[in-house]
Computed example of a mutant assay.
Amino acid sequence: MSGLNIFRYFISASLLMVILVVSSCKKEGAAGIMTVLHPVELAIPENFSRPAGDLDNPLTSEGIALGKMLFYDTRLSGNNRLSCASCHRPELAFSDGVALSHIGESGKILPRHSPALINMAWMNKGLFWDGGSTNLESQAFGPLTSEDEMHQNLAELESELSQVPAYVKQFKMVFNSQVKSAAIVKALAQFERTLISGDSRYDRYVRKEPGGVLSAEELHGLTLVNQKCRSCHAGELFTDNDFHNNGLDQDFSDSSLEGIFQGRYRITYQLTDLGKFKTPTLRNVMLTAPYMHDGRFASIDQVLTHYQKNTQLAIPLSAAEKKAIIAFLGSLTDSLFIQNKNLSQPI
């Protein structure tokens, strides 16, 4: 790594959040002045695979900083009351802690649980619980424009942010553009791709680093997770990013809300996808209750009981095994991730 200029975008005790400047590029900014941007490459945890890069929206330190500002800005909502962080709180691993939110502009209860934003750079099989969006850029338009969420008119948003000199300057610098909705979602996506969680006690155990000690019960829980859960919660991401029917419901005849309860079938119209929903990661799972696409389970114990008693799944678990699994899941909590001031609201 000698010869590389190391740019510490996220100052953290963990080297996992260091971003390396690998090159620089220039864009012609206002008055013909050449603006230097700093392309970055995420420092990937050693036990992780590399995510695919986005050639249409390459990461730069300036773009990430702009995306962070936008993520916490309530002007992104029609009534200037909600930001992305209203439903994705850093201290809860960017989840919201409620089953079904009703803080959107309409006040209606949403039909689905707000997912946690963890390791989004690896989300390559579709976003939302049914995979209805193919990438982070297109995904952002959903909550931004939904009348039950942020309910923002995109033209009005462009106009409002264009009244802020700092935004005008940054959009010109980062995208050589006026404040446009396409650039807004690109900046948001850049910030979200930096939400890397890979420094839990489990990770330190795997990498044989200081602090990586698991108790006998936690190790037993790890063995049980490997035996009983890895078909869906696969690899070091603890998700296959795919879609599965885990036996929550049997009746999908209610096609109200545009088939919102039919899962992946709503997108593919393949009968084999009926009732399939995206596998959430187990990372930081003790922080992201309640669980499932509709938040129906308040605790991990309830989740495990479902898998234990559901005849479709029939995963046998004793009380001691459930206790061991829960103990291990606690070792997946990444305190540095949730406490990182550089991911939290700008002061």
Rank of each mutant, 00 (worst) to 15 (best):
G3K: 07
Y9I: 03
F10Q: 09
I11M: 15
A13L: 12
S14M: 04
L15F: 12
L16R: 04
M17W: 10
M17R: 05
V22A: 12
C25F: 13
A31P: 14
V36L: 11
P39D: 13
P39Q: 14
L42I: 11
I44T: 13
P45H: 02
E46L: 14
S49N: 13
R50Q: 11
D54N: 04
A65R: 02
K68H: 14
M69Q: 08
L76I: 06
G78Q: 11
S83G: 07
S86V: 06
R89T: 09
R89Q: 14
E91Y: 03
E91H: 03
S95I: 13
S95R: 07
V98M: 03
G104I: 00
P111V: 00
H113P: 04
P115E: 08
P115Y: 12
L117P: 06
N119H: 01
M120T: 04
M123H: 10
K125N: 11
G131T: 11
L136T: 00
G142W: 13
L144P: 00
L144Y: 08
M150F: 05
H151W: 11
H151S: 09
S162K: 11
P165C: 10
K169E: 05
F171D: 01
V174W: 08
S177M: 08
L188R: 06
F191N: 07
F191E: 03
R193A: 03
D199W: 03
R201Y: 02
D203E: 09
V206F: 12
P210C: 11
V213N: 05
L214F: 03
H220V: 10
L224F: 06
F243I: 08
G247E: 06
D249Q: 02
Q250N: 12
F252P: 00
G259H: 06
Q262S: 10
L271F: 15
N284D: 14
H293G: 08
G295D: 01
F297C: 13
F297G: 08
V303G: 04
T305N: 12
Y307S: 10
L317N: 01
K322F: 05
F328K: 01
D334M: 06
S335M: 10
Q339I: 15
N340L: 06
N342L: 09
S344V: 15
